[in-house]
Design a binder for these strands. Structure first.
Lengths: 231, 231
DNA sequence: TGTCGTATGGTACGTCGTACGAGTCAACTG
DNA sequence: CAGTTGACTCGTACGACGTACCATACGACA
C-alpha cells in the first residue's frame, strides 16, 4: 500500500517497434488501471453483477488473477471504479444563457439517467457504493447550475437531493423492470392469479405497460415547478 | 419441487406436553418458513447483506444448513422473503374521508419509507429483487387511494410511479449515507482535499448535513401539487 | 409390518476472493 | 560492469461460500 495506483498510463504499444526480446510473444498489452476498468465494464454489461469475478476479469485481460491486485485493492474497488467510469460526463461545457437554466438542468439529469440505463447493473450498484469523482462532478455541475439560476443557498441542498432522488428512483425502477425477463411471466401470473387482490393495479396495467420516459419527465417538471424561484 | 412451501405453520411447542420420545432434547423449535424469514431479517439487521449466509442462518436456527433448503429454494429466495417481510403494512384500515386523500397518501408513503429505513439493507436490496405480495399490497393501496381521490385512470400510472420513485430515491440515498461510517471521513477528505474541484458542493455542505426528512416531505409536496386534480 | 410423505442434515464439489511469496525485468547506482 | 531497487506479474493455497446428492428419521395410514 504505497505508491500503488499512481495514475500510471500504459504507453501505447506501437507495433513493429522494439521486437519482443526473449519471451514468447505476449499478445496482450500490459495491464493498467484503465484497461482493467474498461474490461470490467464490458464484463458487467455482458454478464451482469454476478458475472463479474476476478478470475473472469483476469481471463479477459489475458493476465493472472493476482496481477489485478497490484492495480486494485479488492473487488469492491473494481465495482467503484466501474460505476464511476460509466458516469463520466461528456456534456456541453458551454456557458449557458441564464434564462435557459431549466433546459440545462433537464439535459444534465436526462444524460445522467441515460448513462445509467445504458448499463443496467449500475442502477442496482449505486445504492451501496461510494461516490466517485464523476458522480461528484455531476452533483457539482447540478449545484452550480441551480445556484446560478437563482436558487438560494438555503434551498440548494433540498433542491439537489430532490432531483437526485428522482433520477435515482426512476432509473432504478426502470432498470429493474427492464432486465428481469421473467418480468412478463411473473407479472402476468400475479395479475391473472391474484387479480382479486390487486384489482386497481391490474386495471391500470401498472406492471405491464408504463411510460417510463414520460413519468420521468413529468415528475421532473413538477419538481422543477416547485423548486424554481418564481420569476 | 412439489408441495414445498405450503404455508406450513409450525404448531406451537407446548412445553411439558408430550415428553420427547427417545432423542436427546432438541432445544430449538422445529424449522418453519416463518422462523427462517424472521431470523434472516435479524441476521441482516445485525450483519448487513454480506453477513447473511446460509451457514450462519442455520447456526442461528440451531439446524443443519441443508435443512433450510426444504423450506426455501435458494438464497435468493431468502432475500426476497426477508425484503417482503420488512414491508408488511400495518396501517389504519379505516375508510378515510375523500377530502383527506392527501394526508392518506402522505401517511402511506412515510410509513413505507420508515419501514425501509428501519432495515437499511432493504433499500439497497429492493432494486434487484422481485416484487413480493406486501410490496404489491402497498402499491395497490396507493393506487386505490389516488383513484378514489379523483386521479384519472390515464394519469394513474404516472402518479404511482412518480411517488414510488420519490420514495425509493429518498430512501436509498438516505440509507446509503447512513450506514457508511467512513462517510464523514471520506466526505471530509474529499471536501478539504478537493474543495477547488467541487466548490459549490463544499459551500452548501451537501454531503455533511442535509435534511433528509425535510427533503422527502418537500419533494413529496411538489409532486402531489403537480399530480393532484385541481379542485 | 410395510410404505409413503414430511422433514432433517452430513458429506462433498466447484467456485469464489485474496494472502503469501517467488519470480521477471527495466532503470538506476556505484 | 555488477549490484540493487522498485515496479509489476502470477502460481499456489486457504477458508468460506451455495448447494447437489443421498442417507436417515418419524408420524400416519395400509
Amino acid at each position: 500500500m504505497v505508491a500503488k495506483r499512481s495514475g500510471a498510463q500504459s504507453k501505447r504499444a506501437r507495433p513493429g517497434e522494439l521486437p519482443r526480446p526473449v519471451q514468447e510473444p505476449r499478445n496482450e498489452p500490459p495491464l493498467s488501471l484503465e484497461r482493467i476498468v474498461v474490461t470490467a465494464v464490458e464484463l458487467l454489461d455482458a454478464q451482469g453483477i454476478d458475472g463479474l469475478t476476478m478470475r473472469r476479469l483476469a481471463e479477459r485481460l489475458g493476465s493472472g488473477v493476482m496481477s489485478l491486485y497490484w492495480h486494485v485493492d479488492n473487488k469492491e474497488d473494481v465495482f467503484d471504479l466501474a460505476l464511476d467510469k460509466v458516469l463520466e460526463y461528456r456534456g456541453a461545457p458551454e456557458a449557458t444563457e441564464p434564462q435557459e437554466w431549466r433546459a440545462e438542468v433537464i439535459h444534465v439529469l436526462e444524460d445522467w439517467r441515460t448513462s445509467m440505463l445504458r448499463h443496467p447493473w449500475s442502477a442496482s450498484l449505486l445504492p451501496r457504493r461510494a461516490l466517485g469523482p464523476n458522480i461528484l462532478g455531476r452533483l457539482e455541475l447540478l449545484s452550480r447550475t441551480l445556484s446560478e439560476a437563482g436558487v438560494a443557498d438555503a434551498d440548494l441542498n433540498v433542491a439537489i437531493w430532490s432531483l437526485w432522488n428522482h433520477v435515482m428512483g426512476s432509473t432504478i425502477t426502470r432498470a429493474s423492470f427492464e432486465l428481469s425477463d421473467d418480468d412478463k411471466a411473473a407479472a402476468q401470473q400475479r395479475l391473472t392469479g391474484l387479480s382479486e387482490r390487486y384489482p386497481t393495479i391490474e386495471r391500470s396495467r401498472l406492471l405491464l405497460d408504463s411510460d417510463w420516459d414520460g413519468t420521468f419527465r413529468q415528475g421532473l417538471d413538477f419538481l422543477l415547478d416547485g423548486l424554481a424561484p418564481r420569476q
